Amino acid sequence: MKINWFKYSAPMNFYPLAGKLIPIFWIAAILFITLGLYWGFFKTADVLSDQKQYYRIIYVHVASAWMAMWLYAVMVAWAMIGLVFNTRLSFMMASATAITGTVMTVIALATGAIWGKTSWGTWWDWDPKLTSFLILLFVYIGYIALQSAIDDVRRSDKASALLALVGLALVPIIYYAVNCPDPNECASLHQESSLERVESNILIAMFVTTFGFWMYSFATILMRVRIIILERERKTSWVSKLKEFNG
């Protein structure tokens, strides 16, 4: 049976589909996050026997940092689709993604600060790695604020989409700062990216937790986009019928 996926570009058709997908993503998120953290906390004890226990915060810190950058790219992709094809749902998805991306960025910064205080004796250091990530948070917040500041939905969508496109330059900058080949060029308290040197047991826990964060992001984005759809489509007949059906 051939499925016409283009029909789901309409908010009216996407709304019920999102409702069906949300429980699936929530179950997957809980399962993989629990499994990843359990593996990291209890199955890497021998591997980390020579490390301080605060090292285990990497399972949350790295996963949230990866998701913060990935979600920004996703947000920009939806914004670009909206600008090119003028599709309402694309802008809605970008708006919903911005909230979850902001949450992931805050988690990454907070866990990094805790790690920094315990490991380096300071909550913060103004180096390229940390500063670029802080700027990413400001761009996320600026995107959300710009949407709220403009009453006309169409104008706010396009203005915030342009801001997101400008901020896209931050993603490769952050990646380069973390993976800088010359330590003297990107001097920092933050250690270099070293996945190739990480023990496989730790990598398993890290990737499983990251996949759980990925599923969590899908679940929360779909939940938020359903709310946005109802807000923007509240004057349509199908939303009125939905309200009547739900009492």
Rank of each mutant, 00 (worst) to 15 (best):
G112S: 05
S148Q: 09
I114W: 04
Q147P: 00
G116E: 01
D127R: 02
L134E: 12
L109S: 06
K129P: 00
T131I: 03
I141T: 09
V106R: 10
G112D: 07
T122F: 05
T118G: 04
W126I: 07
G116K: 02
K129R: 15
I135L: 09
Y143S: 03
L130H: 12
T111H: 04
T118E: 06
V106M: 02
S132I: 06
T118S: 12
W126L: 02
L137T: 09
Q147H: 11
K117N: 11
V106T: 08
T118L: 15
G142C: 03
Y140G: 03
A145L: 05
W126K: 05
G116V: 06
W123C: 11
W115E: 05
A110D: 07
T111P: 00
I114N: 05
T118D: 08
I144R: 01
S148R: 13
T111Y: 01
P128T: 14
K117A: 14
Y140R: 03
Y143R: 10
L146D: 01
K117G: 02
W124K: 13
K117L: 12
I114T: 04
F133K: 04
I141F: 03
A110L: 10
G121F: 12
T131M: 14
Q147L: 14
T131K: 12
Y143E: 15
G121N: 09
F138V: 13
S132V: 08
T122H: 13
T131S: 15
T131C: 01
S132L: 15
I135D: 00
T118Q: 15
I144P: 00
T131W: 09
A113M: 12
T111I: 04
G121R: 14
W124R: 12
K117H: 08
W115T: 04
L109T: 05
W124V: 12
T131V: 05
K129C: 01
W126D: 04
W120D: 04
G142E: 09
P128Y: 15
I144E: 06
I114P: 00
W123P: 01
L136H: 14
F138S: 02
L130T: 13
D125Q: 11
L130K: 06
G142L: 09
V139W: 10
W120A: 12
L146E: 07
L109I: 14
I141L: 13
A110N: 13
G112T: 06
S119N: 12
S148V: 01
I141P: 00
S132T: 09
A145P: 00
Y140V: 11
I144S: 12
V106K: 08
A108P: 01
I141Q: 10
T118V: 08
S148N: 06
T118I: 07
L136K: 06
W115P: 00
A113Q: 07
W115M: 02
A145D: 03
T131P: 00
S132W: 13
L146H: 03
I144W: 05
L130Y: 02
V139A: 11
V106C: 02
L134G: 08
T118A: 10
Y140D: 07
F133N: 13
I141E: 04
L136E: 09
W124G: 03
T131E: 01
L137A: 14
I135R: 10
G142M: 07
T122W: 02
L137S: 12
L134S: 13
W115N: 04
